[in-house]
Structures are given as C-alpha cells and as structure tokens.
Amino acid sequence: MNSRELKPNELKLFVFIASLIPLGWYVWGIQTDNLGANPIEVVTRGLGIWTLNFLLMTLAATPLRHYTGWTWPLIIRRMLGLFTFFYAGLHLITYLWFDQFFDWLAIGKDIFKRPFITAGMATFLLLIPLAATSNARAIRALGGRRWKQLHRMVYLCGVLAVLHYTWMVKADISNPLIYWAILAVLLSARGLSRIQKYNAKG
C-alpha cells in the first residue's frame, strides 16, 4: 500500500470498508446457504478467527511503524482495535445466542468450568475498557501516560485470545500455533524496540 497517495481519511474509509468484508462474507454465506453442513459453527468460529486477525493486525501497527517508518499503520491502528472489539462482540453474541440460546445458568457454568470459555470471556471483558477509552476525549481525561498503561492490556488480550483458541481445538493445534508464532514475533518486536529506545537513551 502506498499511503503517500492516500489521504488519511481516504485510507481510513478504505480500511473501514475492507474490515466489513469478513462480516459480509458470513452474512452472504448464511443467506445463500453456502457455509456447509454446520453454518452456525462456521460463523461462530469464523468471527473468532477474525477477532484474532484484527487483534494481531492492531498489535502489528506500532512495530510496523517503528521498523519501517511508515505512518499509515498508526493512522489505522485505532480503527483496527475497534474492529477487534466489534468482531469479538459478534463472536460472543453467536456463542450466547446460537450456542447457548441465552441459557444463563449454562453460560455461567461454562465460564467457570471450561478454561477456554473463561479465557475467551476474560479477553472480551478486558477489551471493553480499551474500546471505551479509544477516543481523544478519553486520552485527554486519563492523561497520555495512564492511557498508555491501560492500553498495554492489549498484550494480555492477545495472549488470552490465542489461549482461548488453543484450548478450544480438539487435537490439531497447528492453526493456534501459527497464531502463537505471529504473536511471539509481534511481542518480541515490541520488546526489541523498547530495548533499542532504552539503549539510545542510556
């Protein structure tokens, strides 16, 4: 992508539309009965995967900016973060609705008895304050430093979300391992840039 030719607002509009494509895909799939024998499972899992994808894209923005000098990753970082929350919310709704049909007792049992549900639910709860404080007013109200501290929680969300995925699969953990690998790269890139900064100061 060449951000020099796209104005920030155009870039944001482009990313906004592109980010709705996965949702559109599942809506279209349901409408045309194109999602195979178990469409609800496909949608539930697909929305979970896209939550992870957006979470990792969000986490990639800062290292990308650091190592390439590009500015566009920072322009779309907030939007990617909000889409993470958006897909996480849809994923949660599919679970509450189509998996449990709002049987709150069963949902409660699930949260306390089943680690992968616990991890998923914790991820969503931790994403709420991040999404709620994503606007400029919240940054001003909290002050840059505290806002930054709060938003470091996104790393924890990344770990919990991939853990949620890993604990969910039956025997073949090759796909979760790919997510662990990407997460490890992104987190270590972040760590490395911090060390570089520290050394530069020292």
Binding site: N38, I40, A106, K109, R114, P115
Partner: peptide, 11 residues
C-alpha cells in the same frame, strides 16, 4: 472437560 455434552445440534 472442555465442553458440555448436555445438548447437541442436529445437522
């Protein structure tokens, strides 16, 4: 251990 068996979805 990781999910309930109380219900099922008939394909």
């Amino acid at each position: 251990p990781r999910w309930s068996q109380a219900n099922e979805r008939r394909i």
